[in-house]
Design a protein around this nucleic acid. Structure first.
Lengths: 137, 137
DNA sequence: TGTAATCCTTCCAGCTACTGGAAGGTCAAG
DNA sequence: CTTGACCTTCCAGTAGCTGGAAGGATTACA
């Protein structure tokens, strides 16, 4: 059993955030010690890592809750789970494209600064390529 | 010259947000009409698209400001610009890896639901592969 | 066995980045 | 000349943390 500091280190989240997630019932500790310390198992650490990743890519806490639910709720029909997962996957693929564009833009800027003469505004040329539709999430 | 609704559509941001960015001086309108309407040019639209993307991937408004500054500030030494850009690129590459892991996880879940028997907890196997270090942004 | 350092707890205030709504002015179309 | 879709400011509220105070628990070491 791990204390909050341990799971914070293991999950890459601040203790404050882990405590907050416990408070809102997103990822709750397995148990409490006699003195009131939150105690976690590996399962919770994995959930927290999952949440950290999902949050970092714009999924709301409520969406994370729903995704975590997919794994926990035995009564839910399989196709519901699949549908929700597929929706999220499509969203992630859109995000991947956007991330690539951002990467291209900044790479272009960095390249343009190879010597010591910075061009006027490299962003404009690259940003014109707005083939990716907005995510809106 | 475009009004706020036009730039909102063109940039993929809500008008509210465009107005907010103007208020905090992140992306300001080119001018105001006689009646007080905010008027934007293409340059601002491009900046807004850039900001939308950067924000969607966890860059703070202040970081966006700094990045936009790279293009605008003529007095800044070229290596500063390059350094900041390279730092951000490294960050983006880390984010790309994390996004891929999230993608893998959800794909795995969706695959597991192909039939109608959902496995106990597919997340656990996939989440164990935590080779990517936390971003921390 | 004491004590210092480093945990942990709760509670509450504050922050970032929006977001919704009210009250009201502007503008193009019919 | 009014209807409807714009735009304006202002102010309050929300999501998701985040920092700090006050105090108890645990460990490590003399």
């Amino acid at each position: 059993m791990l204390t909050i500091g341990d799971v914070a280190r293991a999950s890459g989240l601040p203790t404050k955030t882990v405590r907050y997630y416990a408070d809102i019932g997103l990822v709750q500790p397995d148990a409490r010690s006699q003195s009131g310390y939150r105690l976690y198992s590996d399962t919770e650490v994995r959930k927290l890592i999952f949440v950290r990743r999902a949050r970092a890519f714009g999924f709301s806490v409520e969406e994370c809750r729903e995704l975590l639910d997919l794994y926990g709720n035995r009564d839910r029909p399989s196709r519901d789970v699949k549908n929700l997962a597929l929706q999220r996957i499509a969203e992630i693929e859109r995000k991947m494209l956007e991330l690539e564009m951002l990467h291209k833009e900044l790479s272009h800027l960095a390249d343009a600064c190879r010597g010591d003469d910075r061009p006027d505004c490299p962003i404009l040329s690259n940003l014109a390529d707005d083939s990716v539709s907005p995510t809106g999430s």
